[in-house]
Amino acid sequence: MYPFTYSRATDVADAVRDKAGHDGSAYVGGGTNLIDLMKMNVEQPAHLVNVAKLPLSKIEDLPNGGLRLGATATNSDTAWNEQVKARYPVLNQAILAGASPQLRNAATNGGNLMQRTRCYYFYDIATPCNKREPGSGCSAIGGFNRVCGILGTSEACIATHPSDMCVALAALAPTVRVSGPHGERSIAFEDFHRLPGDQPELDNTLTEGELITSLDLPEKGFAKHFAYLKLRDRHSYAFALVSVAVGLEMDGDTITEARLALGGVAHKPWRDQSAEQLLKGQPATAETFGRVAAHVVANAVGRGSNDFKIELARRAIVRALKQAAEGQQVAGDVYLGGQ
């Protein structure tokens, strides 16, 4: 690796101050993505501020009935938290579907939101990539784009956000609390990640120096009718080609409220609120699910090697909705495919 300096922050204010005092610096939590990117020379921060040991690792009840997930709580501790398992099982399953036990033990909740795309060209500094080097071009368009996005892409970038956890979060709609040089603010999860447009170098809407301090989940957790379905090239320890998070509220066979988000298909966790509206008030039937799934992928664009994702997404949505309606999936200590 190339040279950089390092410091360990003692509290949030210290971290924010330290980062502001060092040009080209970065926060590091678990480091499971950032350190890899530094080894590949994709990221070259001049200074690292270690925030992993800040006192932000608690998972605690909120007065409004929600649950606060501390930014430095590990993915493992979050997935296996008894409150998360009981009240937000879709999050439990999504986290356990991602990465490996070793990575989940190191990776933090804040870091999960901040991880960068696994597009091959973003990682390969010998090739043009607008996300890595704005204006250089997109090698994935017209290149090997099997893992790339089909929804909300632009002519500048077709990269996907790689997280599983964030797909469940998109369905649960928490707020992201951040602290920065200009104070604290909350960002709706929906507004945290962004589409590439003509600025694919920006993954999210954080401003310079802002640090995630917690994810605040609302009370509603869709604990009875949920699904996290992840489809990938091997049975475990691989990024999603397509994943689907579903949360439903049911009155008999009628869907009274729905949440639907996709992973592996877009620059951000892809929540489709128009599809959620289409599900509302409808019977939980194959006909309903098929109609909604067709609606979600109606504007999908394939780029050659990833054309298959459109049909894969359509079918995955149908299957996940069916699983959720039937209450097939349960929270647990392991993700076994959601079958």
């Binding site: 590091v28 480091g31 350190i35």
Partner: peptide, 27 residues
């Protein structure tokens, strides 16, 4: 692999397994 993809570098930190290649010693 030195990139967190193979697990050969797994060690226990405070009893928990992690990939030692994707973390800095100073941490």
């Amino acid at each position: 692999c030195d990139h967190g993809q193979c697990g050969a570098c797994t060690v226990l930190v405070n009893g928990r397994r992690i990939n030692s290649c994707l973390t800095l010693a100073v941490m």
